[in-house]
């Protein structure tokens, strides 16, 4: 039984408190543990030694230190911010559209990004180096933004039909951009097709200190605005008309939320490729743990941690090569939904 009083610990049950405590421990331990996994096995003690040395300003030499600092740490940071942003965007979109199946990718973002990536890969296919490494994220970002702006332009200003038009135009734009991307791929060489496929399945392998700042900056700024608007976003959950009577300008808030979520998703897709199911699944997981609480920040944190460990799996499952992250999240996601379906039936 959930204890009732608001003033005492805001009414978390012992089980929930235990889960929260575990989550807190996991948050602290994850960076140290996660970097120790990979092709080269590095002990936790060694990780701590290197990290402490780095933090105290010294330069820990050696191959191990370079692997940790230059390869694995940025990768974990990228994975974290990707999971953080996607989970938050998913939770917010599910709330403002009052649709439990809403997802950052539902509004044409991933297909728009794919189209942008395909254009860059097929046009600059032969060109290597700097141009390709900058061009791919840029192309994907432009494609994603284009798709979202088209959805926004189509969803109209009528409050009664806004959600429906948003979802339907998102689906339509997805198919349209997907078709265009397929068409371009069809006329391009097998090499570009392979690299587009690899990109679209998602990976954090390209993470480096030089590219980290942009996704971190954009995701943190957009997330901060969304978190500060939480009270207003929550009110939409009670229905558009009720939200209106609470002094909220519903259409505008919904468009702003969609725009911010799209910004988060677009910058992440551009840098990590298409990683599905996180934005859909993590909010549901947190909701199962804490029914009726809308713990947005917690959802985002769980998303970030989840993504780090998925990436660890991607690095370690096969000894000779990496698995694409998107495949693992999709497998876990579909199993998770089958599990929920089973639970619903037994109720």
């Amino acid at each position: 039984m959930v204890s009732a009083s608001l003033s005492q610990g805001r009414g978390y049950s012992p089980l929930q408190q235990l889960a929260l405590a575990c989550l807190g421990l996991l948050t602290l331990a994850t960076p140290v543990l996660a970097v120790s996994f990979g092709a080269a096995q590095i002990g936790v003690a060694e990780v701590l030694e290197v990290l402490l040395a780095k933090l105290s300003g010294a330069d820990p030499g050696g191959v191990t230190a370079r692997i940790l600092i230059e390869l694995r740490l940025p990768r974990i940071l990228l994975a974290f911010i990707a999971g953080f942003g996607l989970a938050l965007a998913g939770a917010v979109l599910q709330t403002v559209t009052r649709n439990p199946l809403a997802d950052p990718y539902l509004f044409g973002i991933s297909s728009g990004a794919s189209l942008g990536a395909v254009v860059v890969i097929t046009l600059l296919g032969g060109v290597g180096g700097v141009l390709a490494s900058v061009g791919l994220p840029l192309g994907a970002f432009i494609g994603a933004s284009l798709a979202v702006l088209m959805v926004l332009a189509l969803c109209g200003r009528d409050l009664n039909t806004q959600i429906e038009r948003m979802l339907l135009s998102g689906v339509a734009i997805s198919f349209l951009f997907g078709a265009l991307a397929s068409l371009m791929l069809y006329f391009s060489g097998p090499q570009s097709a392979a690299s587009v496929l690899f990109w679209s399945l998602g990976s954090f392998a390209k993470a480096s200190w030089q590219m980290l700042w942009l996704p971190w900056l954009l995701v943190l700024v957009a997330s901060a605005i969304l978190l500060l608007l939480k009270r207003q976003i929550l009110a939409i959950q009670a229905g558009d008309e009720t939200a209106h009577t609470l002094g909220i300008r519903v259409q505008r808030l919904r468009l702003v939320s969609l725009l911010l979520c799209s910004l988060i998703t677009a910058v992440l897709v551009a840098n990590c490729g298409g990683i599905g199911f996180v934005g859909l699944m993590v909010p549901h997981m947190v909701r199962l743990l804490l029914p009726g609480r809308f713990a947005l920040l917690l959802t985002a944190l769980v998303g970030g941690l989840f993504m780090i460990w998925v990436d660890v799996l991607a690095r370690c499952l096969l000894s000779y090569q990496e698995l694409p992250v998107g495949i693992i999240t999709a497998v876990i996601g579909s199993l998770f939904f089958l599990f929920i379906l089973g639970g619903k039936r037994s109720n």
Binding site: T245, L246, R287, P291
Partner: peptide
Amino acid sequence: AREVAVVLQDTPQHFDMTTAQLVALGLT
């Protein structure tokens, strides 16, 4: 909205909120 409060008939289908949270919406 600070002058006029409204109680409507229907709440949406997917309405996953605790009672305290619903009441706190009145602070908005």
